[in-house]
Design a binder for these strands. Structure first.
Length: 823
DNA sequence: AGCACGCCGACT
DNA sequence: GTCGGCGTGCTC
């Protein structure tokens, strides 16, 4: 009897909620395992990388089953725990396994094919009657192996394939699918001084020969390792070519190479290396830190998740480092998550000092080849496994061998939630599931816990360790509330500053101390408004007001990028009284320069940090005291510790408080508390001034009294009353369509349909804050499932209802986006 | 996601 | 009268 046929269920990178079954060719039997990558043909010709999810002998009963083209890995690249994690993620966040696959692996590991067209040389082009086909054939025969993509570009046709098929039918051309090699092996070009010039005289001679080519002379000196005037030793160090090219240009470099003064060399990009400091022991912990660490250790014997609630500057990082050391000494690995890339480099330096090469770093600012290298090291396909990975949310997809601990620092941060594209996962919540698969522990750290996490501590699901003491006995700052309305009435406002703040800033700067100003909005002014008729310039295709950008005098839509010139006159009534309303960091920066001439102001926000380094440089300058006032968005609220900052100003607390979201108060409290934590160091008590039009707002009071507990109690009461998490779980069903009437009709139909099953758990449909993005109108339906009922069942029901509605074409081709636990 | 099949406006 | 626009529907 012959052996049964073998089938493989393959995860392909598409948003379809099932896997695809392929034949396993006989010669691959015994080699194929779940988690390996394969190349398969999908559709009429394209080849894709897929992941084997399952090997089995059940014939799916599909005619024309295709066969796996090739097996890429001898050993699984996605381990069993990862596969289970992917399953969980696609199930919980209601997306396809393919979408998880897509975001889980660096793109160098997910190749796909490109169609290349070759001419048949025995073919006589005169046989073609069609002129257009003749031209295309000419291009192909002149460029054998040209890609379809380039061909359609050259001939200015969006879809050239029908013509190519015509040529193929004429036996004049054929196609070959070529799989891209991925960019996993990347080189860079280095240049260095020709060693023959390493002796002084030869080098001098070369310089003399360049007496009339100043640029080349300069470049040669730099390449030799000599700065312009310095006459030290010739180093002959290899430097990246692009540094010299950007400074001196291609031509300069070319002539130097032609003269054989310098040599170029291709080098494989080395794994990420940090400076080679001596490895040091972790710093000694304070008694408070020591007892927190003891507590964590002890509570981990009973619970898998612990919240470390440590006020700002209490030294949480040092506790993490001690804990990490214990875990890796046991032979287990640690994943250390941070909410954003900007914070990674300073933490990495601290980790590097203690753990050296055992620590690796993973986030999107690294090139794909670097990410592939790190992935390969972690999966054991390449030597040099890291023991600690520091990363942002996507690091939860790395292959760990034996994960022992996940640290989620600043667990309350909303950047842990991915919005676009699917999977719309929350890395903090997913970490807890991932850890349970590895039987690992999770430590959530923050000064301002999220309401959900704190509630989990209250119910005993998580344990809590509190760190009340600031490291080095730094005092908590004094918090002063400054009433904007009162100042306006007395006409004492200067630009956006109350006299209280102006006064404090003046004193602070005179004392040689530094100021941080917080304004959670970018740009110059928010928008323009006609003082006569109230008309506001809005984006033509999105439903938002245009943001005024001062530097190029334009109005920009922050959603679609639409830009128009600034309106001098009102489009509506022709009045020339256009005034600016609201303010952002850029305006604050400008106004300070006017009010305090001669002082140094800098701005830290998304616009002001373009490159990898400028952010670090800015903070470095501020740390050195070269900047008096730093204006920033929420970027300044996290992890920046500066000795010399004694004043923090929160310019517009209302703007945060009035945001229409159930988390607005929680978020405001977190931001204000975090920003306040930047004020005051060792010997001096810092000062925080909060400007508001609503001094009686309870959140402001809680911030002033540093009273997290009361804020939590009040919030949890409201959440219960108005049915919000953690009392319910929410799913946002977002509907998009170009036609507004169709959208409304479809949305109403779907919500009625949902109400039949879910009753009053369905809210909406309603237009979100921004009701249109690009040319798509949007409507949201919210589903609230109480904690007691089965969330799993609700997801299945929801999926079935949507599938049924789509099948009956009741939704008219709307795009439906599901967001589980939305933010 | 691609790609093919299928039905309505501006061109040889 | 076609070409070709992108609107629906599969793809193992």
């Amino acid at each position: 009897m012959s052996k049964p046929e073998l089938f493989a269920d393959i995860i392909l990178p598409f948003p379809v909620d099932h896997n695809f079954t392929y034949f396993v060719p006989r010669e691959m039997e015994g080699q194929v395992r779940p988690g390996q990558r394969v190349i398969v043909q999908f559709g009429s010709r394209k080849l894709y990388t897929g992941i084997i999810r399952k090997i089995h002998t059940t014939n799916p009963g599909i005619t024309d089953l295709k066969t796996i083209v090739s097996l890429l890995d001898a050993k699984a690249i996605v381990n069993e725990i990862q596969l289970l994690f992917w399953d969980w993620m696609s199930d919980y966040y209601m997306c396809s396994a393919g979408e998880v696959f897509k975001s889980a692996l660096p793109s160098g590991l997910k190749m796909e094919s490109e169609s290349l067209v070759f001419p048949d040389n025995n073919f006589n082009p005169d046989n073609l009657t069609d002129n257009k086909l003749k031209l295309i054939y000419k291009t192909i025969s002149e460029n054998p192996g040209i890609s379809l993509r380039r061909l359609s570009k050259i001939h200015h046709k969006a879809n050239i394939f029908p013509d190519i098929r015509n040529l193929i039918d004429h036996n004049s051309a054929f196609l070959i699918e070529k799989v891209h090699e991925g960019k996993s092996i990347k080189t860079r070009t280095l240049i260095f001084l020709n060693p023959e010039l390493n002796s002084g005289p030869a080098f001098e001679k070369a310089l003399e020969s360049l007496a009339r080519a100043l640029k080349q002379k300069q470049a040669l000196k730099e390449i030799a390792g000599l700065s312009c005037n310095d006459r030290a030793e010739i180093t002959g160090i290899k430097i990246p070519i692009n540094e010299i090219v950007t400074k001196y240009g291609h031509a300069t470099l070319k002539s130097l190479i032609n003269k054989n003064y310098i040599i170029r060399e291709e080098e494989l990009i080395a794994p990420i290396k940090w400076n080679n400091n001596q490895i040091k022991d972790p710093e000694t912990l304070s008694p408070a830190q020591q007892s927190a660490l003891y507590s964590i250790r002890e509570k981990f014997t009973r619970r898998d998740v612990i919240l470390l609630h440590g006020i700002t500057s209490s030294g949480k990082t040092e506790i993490y480092i001690h804990l990490i050391k214990e875990i890796i000494e046991r032979g287990e690995q640690v994943l250390y998550l941070l909410p954003e890339i900007a914070l990674t480099s300073q933490i990495m330096h601290r980790l590097y000092n203690v753990f050296g090469d055992e620590a690796g770093i993973y986030h999107s600012r690294f090139s794909d080849s670097e990410r592939v290298a790190l992935y390969n090291r972690m999966s054991g396909r390449q030597a040099g496994e890291y023991k600690i990975i520091l990363g942002v949310r996507s690091a939860i997809f790395l292959p760990f061998r034996k994960l022992g601990l996940i640290i989620v620092d600043e667990e309350h941060e909303n950047t842990y939630k991915q919005f676009e594209p699917a999977p719309r996962y929350n890395a903090r919540d997913s970490s807890i599931v991932l850890a349970s698969f590895y039987k690992a522990k999770v430590l959530l750290g923050t000064a301002t816990p999220s309401v959900e996490t704190y509630a989990n501590c209250m119910t005993g699901k998580y344990e809590k360790v509190v760190l009340k003491e600031r490291y080095g006995s730094i005092k908590l700052p004094e918090i002063i509330i400054s009433d904007i309305i009162a100042a306006r009435k007395r006409k004492t406002m200067q630009s956006v500053f109350t006299p209280v703040l102006i006064d404090a800033m003046d004193k602070t700067i005179k004392n040689g101390k530094q100021v941080i100003l917080f304004q959670n909005r970018r740009g110059f002014s928010l928008f323009l408004e006609c003082q006569d008729c109230g008309w506001i310039p809005k984006c033509k295709i999105c439903d938002v007001s245009l943001i005024y950008h001062k530097f190029n005098k334009s109005l920009v839509c922050h959603y679609c990028g639409f830009t128009r010139k600034i309106t001098e006159k009102c489009d509506h009534c022709g009045s020339s009284l256009m005034i600016t309303r609201g303010f952002g960091t850029e305006r604050v920066e400008d106004d300070i320069a006017l009010i305090f001439p001669g002082i140094k102001v800098a701005r830290l926000d998304l616009d002001s940090i373009k490159s990898r380094n400028s952010h670090d440089k800015l903070l470095d300058d501020f740390g050195k005291g070269e900047i008096n006032v730093l204006v920033g968005t929420q970027m300044i609220s996290k992890g920046l510790d500066f000795e010399n900052v004694s004043l923090v100003g929160i310019l517009d607390a209302d703007q945060m408080l009035n945001y229409p979201d159930f988390r607005a108060y929680e978020r405001s409290f977190q931001l204000m508390a975090q920003v306040s934590g930047r004020a005051g160091r060792k010997d001096e008590r810092g000062k925080v001034i909060i400007q508001t039009t609503d001094p009686a707002n309870p959140v402001i009071k809680f911030v002033k009294e540093n009273d997290f507990e009361s804020m939590f109690t009040e919030q949890i009461r409201e959440r219960k009353l108005f049915k919000y998490p953690p009392f319910v779980r929410m799913i946002k069903v977002s509907l998009r369509h170009k036609n507004y009437d169709m959208l409304v009709k479809g949305a109403r139909y779907l919500s009625d349909e949902l109400k039949l099953t879910f009753g009053n758990r369905v809210y909406g449909p309603q237009s979100p804050l921004v009701g249109r993005i690009s040319t798509y109108y949007i409507m949201d339906i919210l589903l609230k499932i109480e904690k007691q009922s089965s969330f799993k069942k609700a997801r299945v029901l929801l999926k079935n209802i949507i599938r049924e509605a789509e099948r009956n074409k009741w939704l008219g081709g709307m795009r439906i986006i599901l967001d589980v636990d939305p933010f």
